[in-house]
Design a protein around this nucleic acid. Structure first.
Lengths: 346, 346
DNA sequence: CACGGTCGAGTTAACGATAACAACATGCGG
DNA sequence: CCGCATGTTGTTATCGTTAACTCGACCGTG
């Protein structure tokens, strides 16, 4: 019952059993009409008996095109990226494409080999969440296959990308806090070298400008990479002489770290954050979350890629930039909160 | 800068530019010592100039072995499976293997085509979280490549698998509740056709027997598939004439649904559940969770598979069954709870 | 009965890389 | 100066499949 190596049947074997040539087997399996019913049946019988399956590697070589696309994400453990991957899967499957997944672990230096490896495997296209700002390896990849960027934009490369409304979402969520009367909102952000980090900070800042408040520099913490660093940063902020009265977090991990810090400190503070996450509605905290459909980012990216694959012959169309909309969700605390007014602001 | 089709260079092109044969190019790229330093440099120069990359499809065909393994999970959106996938990735990468991912969406009827597709793509092995109890398609796959089962055992197939201590974990967590003095513990479980569902129910039952309590049949709800169905079932239980005083949930999604139901009902009840999840420590609920390393399931599965791949020639070793250990985590409520004693039981 | 047409099936060559072998030059001992 | 090892490179055949072509049998028509 276990795999017996050296026994994988080929079209030739099928042909021998069905007393036809390999070519006829190929025709039958391709549903070519020019085969008599009798032969067709003999071939199918032989296929069944041998458990024959077409060798996709050989087909890829002969036909060109492997039927695979590559997906490179930075951290599959983050639900955001696994949803994105699911979205890509969904659309890929609709088009008969298989997805080869790589995880860079947010280590920008590992990305080039992952991308090159996928190109070597003849993927027909790539969807990449770039881990770093150095992207020349992606430029190189683009000479072989179309590349679509997801969640973070290309730096100086002319190609499609799918983004969320980073600026808009951050601005809106921050505005909610400010509308509640907060004037000392802390910013807990990922490394500013990341597009999303910079863009969401910009939104945070813009919301302040709109109400004529200058954000306090001592309340801005960047370079947070996970829940643990965010937790420490939050505890540090809470211990400051003039602590914040609300927090803005640039992603789900950071929000979770901040919430853990508040819990451990026995404090409650209104928290706003980018990304929704499981159980955000049952925490009993005044939470303002920038929510969006992560699957949709993957779906859109896959659609852009498939579109390019289907128009491979002609002149490549101009590069497109798709934006996935965000909307703000507000979860209330058991009791009213915030120094200014009721938590049902904005 | 965009992909120019029809321009992908081959070894022949590189050879022409470097004024050598394709064979010599192959030798250089393989680091074959029998090439003069001068030629080697010319070839590398040509490779760089053309941006040449070896065609892995052609290599696979010639050399046998695609350098890929297939992974089929039931629901990538569940952190459990994305962690598992990461574990597989980690070990696969260590061995120079790439992972092709498929998601069955827990639809057992889709699984055969996914598996067949992966086999067609010449994956060298498969790791599968089987979605259903019909597994003859996996038996068929096993005639081509080794298959390792993860999280759920094979049904009548002789092959390796990696499981968690389903029975033991469920028994231990239930025992914690019973030790706290609960006598009416509800069981919220996934479909009993699923191995984990049945096994965890068995553990739930065993814990009761050990203390001489007969579980109340009206408190046992099976067939829950996600957070929403679990939420409804919980609300239903709470509305019963003789409601439970504690809950046991068989997985993370069900726990989350139950917690949401409790939150909406404005009640607090001790909850035990299989799987840990984000923010479980900050809910301020009396939670007893069966925790384990989901990555490790993936790693172990990949190790078993790699092991079989490396001993492909000889007689296949007897099938192995690896178990990943569980341990119980207890999160306290702000105040003591449970009718019997303090929540620090077991 | 010869001829063009259609149908079914086989043959050849190619996709790109490489193992195995062949070929050629060089150099050294005899 | 021959022969044979050594070192470098080229040639051929192959992996499994399939596009394009070829071939033979059979049919109906004039």
């Amino acid at each position: 019952m276990t795999a017996r190596r050296g026994s994988v049947p080929t079209m030739h074997d099928v042909g021998k059993l069905a007393q036809v040539s390999a070519m006829t087997v190929s025709r039958v399996l391709k549903n070519d009409p020019g085969v008599s019913e009798a032969t067709r049946e003999r071939v199918f019988a032989a296929v069944d008996r041998l458990g024959y399956r077409r060798n996709q590697t050989a087909r890829s070589l002969r036909l060109g095109g492997s039927g695979m696309i590559g997906l490179v994400v930075t951290n599959l453990a983050n639900p955001f990226y696994s949803r994105l991957a699911l979205g890509v899967q969904e659309v890929a499957t609709e088009h008969g494409l298989r997805v080869v997944l790589s995880n860079s672990g947010e280590q920008a230096d590992r990305e080039p080999e992952l991308v090159d490896g996928l190109v070597d495997h003849q993927v027909e296209g790539l969807i990449v969440v770039p881990a770093g700002s150095r992207q020349q390896h992606l430029a190189a990849a683009m000479r072989h296959v179309p590349v679509v960027f997801a969640a973070r934009p290309p730096a100086g490369l002319d190609t499609d990308c799918v983004l969320v409304e980073d600026f808009h979402g951050a601005r809106e969520a921050t505005a909610c806090l400010l509308a509640d009367g907060h004037t000392r909102v802390a910013f807990l952000g990922n490394p500013p070298a990341l597009y999303t980090g910079a863009e969401r900070l910009r939104g945070f800042w813009a919301a302040h400008e709109e109400v004529g408040i200058e954000p306090d520099g001592t309340l801005i913490r960047q370079g947070l990479t996970d829940s643990a660093t965010a937790e420490r940063a939050t505890l540090d902020l809470l211990g400051q002489p003039d602590p914040p009265t609300a927090l803005f977090c640039t992603n789900n991990r950071i929000s979770q770290g901040a919430i853990r810090a508040l819990y451990k400190a026995g404090t409650t503070l209104p928290v706003a954050g980018f990304d929704n996450f499981d159980l955000s509605d049952v925490l009993g905290l005044p939470l303002t979350l920038v929510s969006y459909d992560a699957d949709e980012i993957g779906r859109q990216a896959a659609r852009l890629l498939v579109d390019r694959l289907e128009h491979r012959d002609g002149e490549p169309p101009a590069s497109r930039r798709v934006t996935v909309p965000t909307h703000v969700i507000r979860h209330g605390a058991p009791s009213g909160d915030g120094p200014g007014q009721a938590p049902t602001g904005a």
